[in-house]
Design a protein around this nucleic acid. Structure first.
Length: 603
DNA sequence: GCCGTTTTCGGCCCGACTGTTTTCAGTCG
């Protein structure tokens, strides 16, 4: 082997590397550097952040030439190595010496971009958001070139908004809001003029669907995009801007409206003609990275795509002929691609797979036959055992596992052996009266700090399904967590590890679990990993799921319901699974109950 | 800074809205 490189004893994950490159891009923007150079850094950041393997590992092992990865060339590959080896990047450090880092916060403000940020800094000597706020409040921003009274107010407003709004929203919340707005738009057909009864029946019909990251099923949503196809656009946009929850109207044009709701969520609405609906849906579904890649492909094929359609281009680069755009399908077809489901559109290899006609046959909600994680009033659930079972059956599930908490989780009124044995009796009785659904006796048993389980084997062996999870001692080191899991998984009763990283979106980062080691342990002991469908968990996440899939780690999708209505959260789990490229064959609870139990048996 | 069914140089996705503009720059997605 060549020279030995000293590695700093710090964890540099892909996210950290990506953050440095994004920051370099931001700083270069403020400097007014070459926009294409900036794009390269941003592009590289995206590639790194969404790459299936750890760059730290790639660098350390030295088996992969980083420059063979698309988007990473000589300069950036050198910087990646530098970051992994030293934990730092000189170019980044130099930029920070040149440009006050607090300018990056100014650039985050709505309506303030790199140009304005640079001007504020150079002309006014302002480097902090507070400084901008003072100048705006004193009416001193309006004198700057390109800014006026309105811009000044807008900037002031966005500083105040910033204090109120966190930025992103849970998929579940955004989805509900989107549907409220769609219902609202449909409830009041767009009519401007009062008409006689007969004429009123002729109200314009229109089609409205969510697009953007919501349609792609991302775990958090920045703002909601809604696409409308129809005529009478102004009336639709008018009505949209009058939605009762609107706090302020950000834009109100002929084809586009944008509002901020009281919840802080921003909603953008676009109206297009039916002829362009597919093109617009593709365009506004994104992701940006996917669309950029798609367009560059179109360009190479002599086409250009925008939100109105796919056009043939002549030699001068002028649009010549409209070729497609009514549906998304026809656009992908023109580009000689298999139709790419929205959840895959992240430029993580889906275009290459679609070219080879090798896209996965993604799992669908109807494929999931059982829900293997739910609670009842016996611990911290809101519905009784009977209510949960009935609600599951009415949703068409073939089996459920009742998995209440165990005694260590005191806040949830966790059960000891005695109470669980009593619940087992109750379930046995209910089973005799119940048809149309199989009830599995289970537990969500705590893994104690040292890896022991919270219940004795004599109870565990009476159960159909032992789900285990971590609810305490979140601050253990990666090694301690690995040891803890190794010991827990060694218990032959353990079948499923629930919410494997423990993260709670916006509340709590994952505990320091080494995901690669976790996967190895799960495979070794034949323990399934759960994809928890709660919108604030979605754990494992999409990137982990894809890694698990590639490594052959068995997955189950469950809701962890604490109420009957939460059984519907399964759809968020399935969306996330689709984002992880999972097919039904990767998910154990797509099997009928007998085969499922056989598949997860460890002997 | 990256990349190559024209290529190792010369390109690099595209359009709407807003405000301060008499023709467009900045921002956003």
């Amino acid at each position: 082997m060549g020279d030995l490189v000293e590695f700093k004893n710090t964890m540099i994950d892909n996210k950290a590397i990506a953050r440095i490159f994004n920051e370099i891009a931001d700083l270069l923007e403020i400097k007014g550097d070459n926009p294409f150079r900036i794009r390269s850094y941003r592009n590289a950041a995206t590639v790194i952040e969404t790459f299936g393997e750890s760059f730290e590992k790639l660098v350390r092992e030295g088996t992969v030439d980083l420059q063979s990865i698309s988007g990473i060339g000589e300069a950036i590959s050198g910087k990646i190595k530098e970051i992994v080896e030293t934990g730092d990047c000189k170019a980044h450090r130099d930029l920070l010496k040149e440009i006050p880092p607090t300018l990056l916060e100014i650039m985050q403000l709505q309506g303030v971009g790199p140009k304005t940020t640079a001007m504020l800094w150079k002309k006014m000597g302002v480097t902090t958001v507070e400084g901008v706020e003072q100048l705006a409040a004193a009416g001193k921003l309006r004198d700057l070139a390109g800014l006026g009274e309105k811009s000044e107010q807008k900037i002031l407003q966005s500083i105040q908004n910033r204090k109120k709004v966190s930025g992103r929203h849970l998929l579940g919340d955004a989805e509900q809001t989107a549907h409220q707005i769609l219902d609202y738009l449909h409830a009041g057909p767009p009519e401007k003029k009062k008409r006689a009864k007969t004429a009123r029946q002729k109200t314009t019909s229109f089609l409205a669907v969510p697009a953007g990251s919501l349609r792609r099923g991302r775990e958090t949503i920045g703002d909601v995009d809604i696409l409308v196809a129809g005529k009478n656009c102004e009336a639709i946009i008018d009505r949209f801007t009058q939605f009762p929850e609107v706090e302020s109207v950000l834009a109100h044009g002929d084809t586009k409206g944008s509002v901020q709701l009281k919840s802080g969520l921003q909603i953008d609405l676009r109206v297009v003609e039916e002829k362009s609906f597919g093109a617009a849906l593709q365009y506004f579904t994104g992701s940006k990275e996917h669309s950029v890649a798609l367009r560059s492909r179109a360009q190479k094929m002599g086409y250009t795509i925008n939100e109105y359609g796919l056009f043939k281009v002549d030699k001068k680069g002028e649009k010549e002929e409209w070729l497609a755009g009514r549906t998304e399908e026809e656009i992908y077809e023109r580009l000689k691609l298999q139709f790419i489901p929205p959840e895959l559109r992240e430029n993580r290899g889906e275009i290459e797979a679609a070219e080879k006609r090798e896209l996965p046959a993604l799992i669908e909600l109807k494929n999931v036959r059982g829900d293997l994680h739910m609670h009842t009033t016996e611990t911290d659930g809101k519905a009784t055992l009977q209510e949960m079972v009935e609600a599951a059956r009415s949703r068409g599930l073939e089996y459920v596992a009742i998995t209440d908490h165990t005694k260590s989780t005191r806040v949830a009124n966790g059960m000891d052996e005695k109470r669980l044995e009593s619940q087992i009796q109750t379930i046995e009785k209910l089973k005799r009266k119940t048809t149309g659904i199989t009830i599995l006796k289970g537990t969500e048993c705590d893994i104690l700090a040292d890896g022991k389980l919270d219940l004795s084997d004599t109870v565990l062996e009476q159960l159909d399904l032992v789900v285990v999870s971590i609810h305490s001692h979140f601050n253990q080191s990666p090694q301690e967590i690995t040891d803890r899991l190794e010991r827990a998984f060694s218990n032959p009763h353990v079948k499923i590890f629930a919410h494997p990283t423990g993260r709670m979106l916006f509340h709590r980062p994952p505990y320091a679990v080494d995901v690669e080691k976790l996967f190895a342990l799960a495979k070794k002991h034949k323990v399934c990993l759960e994809l928890n469908s709660q919108p604030e968990r979605l754990d494992l996440n999409d990137v982990h799921l894809r890694m698990a899939r590639d490594q052959g780690v068995p997955i189950v999708i469950s809701t962890d319901s604490h109420d009957t209505s939460q059984l519907d959260h399964l759809k968020y789990g399935v969306l996330t699974a689709r984002r992880g490229w999972l097919e039904p064959r990767h998910v154990a609870n797509t099997l009928p109950v007998k085969q499922f139990l056989k598949a997860i048996a460890r002997t």
